[in-house]
Design a protein around this nucleic acid. Structure first.
Lengths: 253, 253
DNA sequence: GAGGTCAGGTTGTCATGACAACTGGTTTCT
DNA sequence: AGAAACCAGTTGTCATGACAACCTGACCTC
C-alpha cells in the first residue's frame, strides 16, 4: 500500500488565493496524468490523505469530487477511490476552437469573410432573447489549422459587444478570448450537434468534395448573469474533425 | 422578496434513504421546471433557505451545486443564485437510446441483425482491454422509433456477459437496461461524435438516399469498478437525429 | 466444505461554526 | 459633482466532529 509519494511533494500553499481543494485536485490530476498514480490503483483513503496534508476531510473530498466530475477517478462506497484505468480524452469544454487548436500545438489562423450589422434573423433574436428584428453584429470566419480549412463559423452577438468584438480582434485571435479579455466570462452553453451535406459554397471554402458530409454545431452561450452572449452556427468537414467527450453518470440513479 | 412558497410545501423526509441534499435538489428542480421559480429570479439565499428547511447550510449548498452542474442555476459570488432564464434541454446523458425514446413518448422497437461470438477486432480488444484476438460477443441492431429507422448499432461486450445480454433481451429492450437489471451500473463513458456518408448497406437499412450524411458515435462504457463493459459503434441518419447537450464552465477558469 | 456472521476499513451524509471574498449601493469626503 | 470609502448582504472556503451505509475478507458454525 505504499507509493504515496508525489502528493506531499507538491505541498499546498495556504497563502495562495487558489483554494486548497483546487490545489489538491490539480496535484492529484498531475500525479494521475504523469502516471505516478497508476491506472486502477487505489487512492490513499480520505482520512489518511487529510492527515498527511494537514487539511480537513471535506477539503479532500471536494478535491476528489472535482476529479470524479472530470472522469479521472471513480469513487466506490465502502471500497475506496480508484484511478480510472484509461485515457479519457478532451471533453467538449466551453472553450473556443482557437484555444483548443493552439493548445494542441497547431497554429490556427482566421480569414474574416464577413463583419456587418444586420437585423437579427428570427431564430437568432429568439436565441439571444432580443426583440424581433433588433440589429445585431454578424460575422463569418473561416478557421484554418496549419493552412488547412477546418471550420466555417457564423456568429451573432448583441450590438453592445461591437466595441469588444472588433474586426482586428477576430482576425488575430478567437472570439472567446476577446470576450474574456473584456471581462465577459461564459458560464453555460447549450449546443446541438448534427450533420448534413456540404453546399456548393462550403465545398469551395472548406476544400472538400461535392456534397461531402459536414458536422454541424449550433451553440448558444450565456454569460455570468445568465444573459445570452453569442449565437453560433458552425460546420466542420467530417473527415478532419470529431467531437470527443466523456460522460459521467449521475452519482444517484 | 416573498414568493418562496412551494419549497416548504414539499417537505424533506428525514426518514427516507434518499439524502436530504438530493431531495432538496429535486424539489428545487421541480419548482424551476414548473415555473414557480421564474426565470432570472433570485433563489432565496442559502442561510435563509437552510433556516426555513431546518437543514445545515452545507446541505443547501450541495443541493444547489447539483442544480448548477445541471445548468439550471448560476451562482454568483456576492450576488446570489439565479435561475437560468432559458430552457436548456436534455443533455447527452449516460443513457441508452432505447430509454431516451421511451421517455419522450415514442415506441422504440429493435431488429436484431446479428448475434454471434467472434474474435475481437484489434480496436475492440484494445478498447475493452482484452488480449489480442480474445473472443467477444458481437451484435448488431436496427433501432426504429414509431416504425422509422433511427439508428444502426454495432456493439461488442466481453464474453462473460453472454448470459446477461441475451438474444431475447436485446429484442425486447435496450442494452443498458439489460445491464442494469443484472446489477451492472455504468459510471463513465468516453465517446466520439463524427459524421460520414452512408454506405450502400446502411442506405438500405436506414432508408436514406445514396451517400446520405450520417452521424456516427463511438462509445466505450465503463462499469462501477472502471472496467470496460461495452464498445459501441453507432450511426444515425442526420436528418432524423442530433445530439443535444449543455456545457457548464469549470467554476474556476 | 459451504454458508453465514462479524469486524475493520472505507466512503456517504449531515451539523455547526467561523471567516474570507465579492458585489452593489450608499454615504462621505474632496 | 465626482470620486473614494464604507457597509450590508451574499456566496466561497475550511475546520471539526459524528454517525450511517457499504464492501471485503476472515472467522466461525453447521
Amino acid at each position: 500500500m505504499g507509493a504515496r509519494r508525489g502528493l506531499t511533494d507538491a505541498a499546498l500553499d495556504r497563502a495562495s488565493p487558489v483554494p486548497l481543494y483546487y490545489q489538491l485536485a490539480e496535484n492529484l490530476e498531475t500525479a494521475i496524468r504523469s502516471g505516478s498514480l497508476s491506472s486502477g490503483s487505489h487512492l490513499e483513503n480520505e482520512v489518511e490523505l487529510a492527515r498527511q496534508l494537514r487539511v480537513s476531510r471535506p477539503t479532500v473530498r471536494r478535491a476528489i469530487a472535482v476529479l470524479a466530475n472530470r472522469g479521472l477517478v471513480i469513487r466506490r462506497h465502502g471500497i475506496g477511490t480508484l484511478v480510472v484505468p484509461v485515457r479519457v480524452r478532451r471533453p467538449v469544454r466551453l472553450s473556443s476552437l482557437f484555444d483548443d487548436l493552439a493548445e494542441s500545438g497547431q497554429t490556427p489562423t482566421t480569414r474574416l469573410l464577413a463583419y456587418e450589422v444586420v437585423p437579427a434573423p428570427p431564430d437568432v433574436s429568439t436565441s439571444l432573447q432580443l426583440p424581433r428584428g433588433m440589429r445585431v453584429l454578424h460575422f463569418e470566419r473561416l478557421r484554418l489549422a496549419s493552412g488547412q480549412p477546418i471550420s466555417l463559423m457564423r456568429n451573432f452577438v448583441p450590438l453592445a459587444l461591437k466595441e469588444v468584438v472588433t474586426e482586428e480582434g477576430l482576425q488575430l485571435t478567437g472570439l472567446y478570448r476577446l470576450l474574456r479579455q473584456s471581462g465577459i466570462h461564459l458560464r453555460l452553453a447549450s449546443q446541438s450537434i448534427g450533420a448534413r451535406s456540404a453546399q456548393p459554397r462550403e465545398t469551395r471554402l472548406l476544400k472538400v468534395i461535392r456534397s461531402a458530409p459536414l458536422l454541424t454545431m449550433r451553440r448558444i452561450s450565456y454569460g455570468d448573469a445568465g444573459q445570452p452572449v453569442e449565437y453560433g452556427s458552425h460546420v466542420y468537414p467530417a473527415e478532419r474533425y470529431s467531437f470527443e467527450m466523456s460522460v459521467v453518470a449521475d452519482s444517484r440513479t
